[in-house]
């Protein structure tokens, strides 16, 4: 009997492995191997002619990470991603709250509205923003007509943040919506019943119970913002180079593969830290 059970379990796990094989192969081929290549390259040497030679392993690419220019770019990427994340949270939380507290029918319509921009090409949307923010664009003209004068916001950090908030807002809305929607409203009532006013009940109950959504959403916005390439390329000026563009430059114009690889490793490390934070939060919640 026990032997039978065991062989059944073995058959099950064999079947499981079979099912997982395509995905495993795919990940191995297009994720693990490139990742290995990146890490390997980060220790390689760039010759004077811009070729990369896989001999004489060294840490010089990592040394360069601490140059002032790089630190400034990392810092700028960091705070712009942070501002983007905070703005997304401020915009998305009330909206997700509103969404989650509607009748199911209204909720579904609103959810579709949230998703629609997602189905249009991101590049086109960013170019649309560029047109919108241009010094002769609608936003500026409206401001002029209202008597505030034209403004110049395109190619500034503000434009990049606006673009990133716009691009990544959905990533914040959805996890927040899920967290708020599955919260038990009886708990808020219980808090009100125990003499908590509306604001205090939110702070003591709603907020902590939806924190998993806040953390998940923040990570989903922060990580792509930190390594963002398209948005700063289109909306940012030469003075607002971010990490993503800087990495791309190393693999392009600068032809410094080892340094680009080292920068990428840093980006990946940031992402891993974010994942760990998220898992800690999830574990705490359970």
């Amino acid at each position: 009997m026990a032997a039978l059970d065991q062989s059944a379990a073995q058959a099950d796990s064999r079947k499981g492995r079979l099912i997982a094989t395509p995905a495993a192969l795919y990940l191995l081929l297009f994720f693990m191997i490139p990742l290995g290549v990146i890490v390997t390259y980060s220790f390689a040497t760039r010759t004077a002619t811009g070729r990369t030679v896989l001999t004489g392993w060294n840490l010089s690419s990592y040394d360069k990470l601490f140059s002032e220019l790089v630190l400034r770019i990392v810092w700028r990427s960091f705070w712009m991603a942070s501002v983007t994340t905070i703005l997304c949270l401020l915009v998305a939380y009330p909206f997700a709250y509103y969404l989650a507290t509607r009748a199911p029918k209204v909720r579904n319509i609103l959810l579709v509205l949230v998703m629609i921009p997602f189905w249009t090409n991101g590049l086109i949307r960013i170019f649309a923003i560029r047109f919108l923010l241009g010094s002769d664009g609608p936003a500026s003209q409206l401001s002029e007509n209202l008597g505030f004068g034209t403004f110049r916001i395109l190619f500034t950090p503000a434009a990049v943040v606006i673009g990133m908030v716009y691009s990544f807002l959905t990533f914040m809305v959805l996890p927040l919506y899920v967290a708020i929607e599955r919260m038990d409203w009886k708990l808020v009532e219980a808090a009100r019943d125990l003499y908590a006013g509306g604001t205090v009940a939110f702070r003591k109950v709603t907020w902590p119970l939806t924190r998993s959504g806040v953390i998940a959403g923040s990570i989903l916005v922060f990580v792509p913002s930190f390594g963002s390439y398209v948005v700063p390329e289109i909306l940012g000026g030469a003075k607002t180079m971010l990490l993503g563009s800087y990495v791309a430059r190393q693999f392009g114009a600068a032809r410094n593969f080892p340094f680009g690889a080292a920068l990428s490793v840093v980006l990946i490390a940031v992402m891993l830290i974010a994942v760990v934070i998220n898992q800690r939060a999830e574990a705490n919640r359970a």
Partner: peptide, 27 residues
């Protein structure tokens, strides 16, 4: 509700899951 001299024992208890028993009672 927070200004009424009444308290409720809810049907499915509605205890705060992110707090300890003592914290629940102290709330």
């Amino acid at each position: 509700p927070d200004q009424r001299p009444v308290n409720t024992v809810f049907q499915n208890y509605a205890l705060f899951p992110h707090m300890t028993v003592l914290e629940n009672v102290m709330f």
